[in-house]
């Protein structure tokens, strides 16, 4: 008997007496219909208030926030952030078309590095696929557009999120993921990021910048 069969056999033994056909139907139903569960009222707001809540929540988890009218203003917002913190005027960014087609050349001396990060970048820029107002969470999916290494290796992570992509709750984002990648399919990595990296492992004092970015700057477009 394979270890697989042995384990499944022991589980079935423990659940003995259960009606297998009914169980199978219940499992199939749950996987296909995906019941919603309890959705907190906190994020269930009109469009304007939802984006406001998102901004308040990301600040609560010690991110900084900038709001710009359109994607065209993103390069200036990136430059402003780097200059205000005296960082090298360079940014690591993936192939995301929403970021690639921006007027980067308008910002003199800003070096735009393309592709995944190798750990030598001070600052990286990603485009989130969504935001969650309830908790101030950014949702980023892996791939050439927004390589996962940019989320973790640079000291400063700048994240663009479109105001239209800010949902009230995580379940709405999961529905969007199903829609984008197909039901039951996922990108290699889906990162839900809520604030900069931190540790409380030394005497339970919270310190920012453990292994990931020390700072997360959110640029909300629209």
């Amino acid at each position: 008997m394979t270890p697989r069969d042995a384990i499944l056999g022991k589980i079935r033994g423990g659940l003995s007496g259960a009606d297998d056909a009914a169980r199978r139907a219940a499992v199939e139903a749950r996987l296909s219909t995906v019941p919603k569960g309890v959705i907190p009222a906190r994020g269930q707001l009109d469009d304007v208030s939802r984006v406001d809540l998102f901004c308040a929540m990301v600040e609560k988890v010690t991110c900084s926030v900038a709001r710009v009218r359109s994607h065209d203003h993103v390069p200036q917002a990136v430059s402003d952030y780097l200059r205000a913190r005296n960082l090298p005027h360079a940014i690591r960014v993936g192939e995301d078309r929403r970021l690639k087609t921006l007027p980067w050349d308008d910002i003199k001396t800003l070096e735009v590095r393309r592709g995944a990060s190798d750990g030598r970048d001070e600052a990286g820029l990603s485009h989130a696929m969504a935001g969650v107002a309830e908790t101030g969470t950014l949702v980023l999916s892996s791939g050439p557009d927004n390589p996962t290494t940019i989320n973790f290796l640079p000291e400063h992570h700048l994240v663009v999120v479109d105001a239209r992509d800010i949902a009230g709750d995580l379940e709405t984002v999961m529905a969007k993921v199903r829609n984008a990648f197909g039901k039951g399919k996922m990108p290699r990595t889906l990162n839900l990021i809520t604030g900069p990296s931190r540790s409380g492992d030394i005497e339970q004092k919270i310190i920012l910048g453990a292994h990931g970015p020390r700072a997360v700057h959110v640029i909300v477009v629209g």
């Binding site: 988890v61 101030g136 969470t137 996922m186 290699r188 839900l192």
Partner: peptide
């Protein structure tokens, strides 16, 4: 409300993934 990183991993890198 949420831990800083909640990460969903599915399979190995895809053919066009850079990392």
């Amino acid at each position: 409300d949420m831990s800083v990183y909640t990460t969903l991993s599915t399979g190995p890198r895809r053919p066009d993934d850079p990392d």
